[in-house]
Design a protein around this nucleic acid. Structure first.
Length: 319
DNA sequence: CGAATTTGACCTGCGC
DNA sequence: GCGCAGGTCAAATTCG
């Protein structure tokens, strides 16, 4: 059991949002803390619409796959407040993956610090400027998108190249959190990788920002079934910054929200705000194929299904 | 030798 | 104001 303070802490830490309207499973944080549903304030409609919202996030309208009703099982607030920004939404890399997605819409008016500044070479100057900016205004973050992936490896291949720039111990967790930045210059996408301490097999990957370039490691997706991931479209994965990883049994996408974020109907601005094909290859059939696999291959969406494998039973009982 | 990783220091935000 | 925790920087180290 976790104390209220711990819950509060967990919420504060990541604002991870996960769970469903009926609280059939608990919200889950990167630290493995169960969270009371952040969706308490969400209307049932919001939750019921999540699945579609999620697919909107994916930028896909796969009406050929009606059974893919992530939403009903994984009601995640889908509001995106960064119309300008497409989402490098991670697609489920593994055919057996099932995900709940969540994004964090944070910037009503995304502050592009880098764009505001000249290409200063002097790092100190840069630092100073950053300081000034930080003091003048509350730091704003790029929209974030988190995954929970059952994996034995921490750093999941997602088609992009990442450079690790930090690692920190996480409170209440024996597992450190690693910080990665996209190696591409001018691309300021970051991601954090950490393990859930309640279930070390789960890797929580949080993407922040949007790639401004196509995947450098994008193999030809021709091959549903020809890749190690069996059915995962590397191209689609790359397009969405999806971890492509072996041994992955399941993925959970969940949206991160800012606390002050307004809840909004998932469709409110989906057409304009979600633009997954924006910088990379567009969604291809293999991605859809993956979705089918996700749908048919997993029981997660039904009852507790896979979540039971991931979320400790005591958490499930907590509600 | 260049790129990537490691790791301690530093900065910032937030709660008390 | 202080302490804590998250996040970032950058020098040192390792790797290919």
């Amino acid at each position: 059991m976790h104390t209220f303070m711990e819950r509060k802490e967990a919420l504060k830490m990541e604002d991870y949002v996960m769970g469903n309207s009926n609280s059939s499973f608990c919200d889950y944080t990167g630290n493995g803390f169960p969270l009371q549903s952040v969706f308490d304030s969400c209307s049932e409609d919001d939750n019921n619409n999540f699945s579609l919202g999620f697919m909107e996030l994916l930028g896909v309208q796969d009406f050929t796959c009606p059974s893919f009703d992530v939403a009903q099982q994984v009601p995640v607030s889908t509001k995106m407040e960064s119309p300008e920004q497409g989402f490098n939404l991670p697609a489920t890399p593994n055919s057996s993956s099932v995900s709940s997605a969540s994004s964090e819409a944070i910037n009503d008016e995304p502050v592009k610090v880098e764009d505001d500044q000249e290409e200063e070479d002097d790092q100190q100057k840069n630092k100073k400027q950053l300081k000034v900016k930080k003091t003048n205004q509350k730091r704003q973050r790029e929209p974030r998108f988190a995954f929970m992936t059952k994996s034995e490896v921490d750093h999941l291949e997602d088609g992009y190249r990442w450079r690790k720039y930090g690692q920190k111990a996480v409170k209440n967790s024996p597992f450190p959190r690693s910080y990665y930045r996209c190696t591409s210059t001018s691309c300021n996408v970051k991601k954090r990788v950490e393990r859930s301490f309640t279930d070390p097999s789960i890797v929580v990957t949080t993407y922040e920002g949007q790639h401004t370039h196509p995947s450098p490691l994008m193999p030809r997706p021709n091959l549903v079934g020809s890749t190690i991931n069996s059915g995962i479209s590397a191209g689609a994965a790359a397009a969405f910054s999806v971890p492509m990883q072996r041994n992955t049994q399941s993925h959970y996408y969940y949206q991160q929200q800012q606390q002050q974020q307004q809840h909004q109907h998932p469709f409110a601005n989906s057409s304009s705000s979600l633009n997954f094909g924006h910088n990379g290859p567009s969604i291809d059939s293999s991605f859809l194929h993956e979705r089918r696999l996700c749908t048919s291959g997993q029981s997660l969406l039904k009852d507790h299904g896979l979540l039971q494998d991931i979320i400790p039973s005591h958490m499930l009982k907590e509600e």
